[in-house]
Write a protein that binds this DNA or RNA. Structure first.
Lengths: 255, 255
DNA sequence: TTAAAAACTGCAAAATACTGCAATATTGTT
DNA sequence: AACAATATTGCAGTATTTTGCAGTTTTTAA
């Protein structure tokens, strides 16, 4: 592991070693390098300063990170928007002329609303004001916003009134986002109120389509919404032959 | 799941992990992060403070929320004329702690929603998704969106369901825009459905405040909403001594 | 209203970073 | 090879950052 054959190591060699470690692990700790390279932490710190000056690494307190290490988000942009668009594109295949749909909120659902063709005639129930407004842009859609108390976090209508209004409808298809999705635990969420709403939505629908980023697969939250067996479709951005999908494929139709 | 390759985790890595969790689930709890990252909640709190300072998340009691999720609809920011802002400023005077309000839609109403102080505790019913979303930004407001079929041009909920839901409430004050306003003909509108909604809203309110640009005074539309005698307040951008106001002043309180 | 949870404050310990400096190593020149 | 000029390294002392803890205040929920 340590290339310390002749006791002393040139600065360039150390730099190369550090770069290699960073490429390997995306990060290095000064303390680790000091031990591995048998030099003082001061020297390591100077090395990291050099590499940072020439823009090869990103120095942080305690070590350094790969320069490509950046926050997985961009300001003013929806996280993983391309993936969500891919999900939206797939979801579109479930929409047919005259269908009656019930939808939740979330950015993925908004992406679907955005790409619904202008010539589709259908009825959309939704608990999300944002989705409703987006859907209302399509001339031929009937958009019904189910009322209730608007939650500040999720920006969807919740509470008893929403649940009881939901009980009065029965739709062909329900689009729902998932916060946690797992083979054994099924669909889970972290907010009790949200879970009540989702359950009510599922009760009001003949078929259920869950949309989820592939990243969320195998994650579990505190509250249970339903089992995987309740799903008719699972729509993700991953290819259906992706290894992470295989187990799900046996339980639910993957789109 | 947790990227804990090495025993210790650099601060920036924690930050990235937090951002990722927020992007994925829209919200995080300090307690969860503390457990997942194996650091004290104090550290998490400081992390969240840092991320909030640089505007990357929105900190709330107990955790943090995704910021990108919170402001998307501000994109279609309407630029209210000064006169509408003036009306909004005046309307604010009618709001008191604990009041229950019912509002319609329209840019003037949105302008009011925007300038409501953060420390006002009150309950707002509304038939406008946009107004509801704007109101939801105020932490202490309870916002109840009355459902119905979303009209494509006015972007308010209408139809039988909305009317019957309105019949079930009784509020202190109703804010309504006016399309036509005239001494003899009262408040008038051009859309039959809108008139039904407005009448239902008026029935559900103890006091009625009509907001209208001064230029709409003395104009008449086809359908009647109510007489001027039904108004408690008429809010315009004109000075109350303006010549065009004088006649109205005898019938209704001008603000 | 009270009780629990969460946030803030100040503080101290540990880890990390910086400064100047002397010892050592490297390089370039004759 | 000898020597000077330069660069690198480790060290000691000091400063800064990070973190957890205890006590207090604020917020939330019942």
């Amino acid at each position: 592991m340590i290339d310390n054959t002749n006791g002393s190591m040139l600065k360039k060699e150390r730099h190369a070693f550090i770069i290699r470690q960073i490429n390997l692990h995306n990060k290095v700790l000064s303390s680790d390098l000091s031990a591995q390279l048998q030099v003082s932490e001061d020297t390591i710190r100077r090395d990291l300063n050099n590499l940072a000056e020439s823009g090869e690494v990103q120095k942080v307190h305690g070590g350094a990170l790969s320069k490509s290490f950046h926050f997985p988000y961009q300001l003013n942009k929806v996280y993983a928007q391309d993936s969500k668009k891919e999900i939206a594109r797939k979801a579109l295949g479930l929409l047919k002329e005259g269908i009656v749909v019930l939808t939740g909120g979330g950015t993925t659902m908004i992406e679907i609303a955005r790409i619904i063709p202008d010539d589709l005639e259908a009825t959309f129930f939704t608990i999300s004001p944002l989705v409703a407004l987006e859907l209302a842009e399509r001339k031929l859609l009937t958009v019904i916003l189910i009322g209730g108390q608007l939650s500040k976090n999720a920006h969807i209508n919740m509470g008893a009134k929403t649940v009881s209004d939901l009980a009065e409808i029965k739709v062909d298809l329900c689009f729902l986002g998932a916060n946690g999705i797992d083979l054994n635990e099924g669909i889970t969420d972290s907010d009790w109120e949200v879970v009540q709403i989702k359950k009510a939505m599922i009760r009001s629908s003949r078929r259920l389509a869950i949309m989820s980023l592939g990243e969320k697969l195998d994650s579990v939250q505190k509250m249970k919404v339903c089992d995987l067996s309740a799903l008719d479709y699972l729509i993700t951005d991953r290819d259906e032959d992706h290894h992470s999908i295989l187990d799900y494929k046996r339980v639910v139709k993957i789109i």
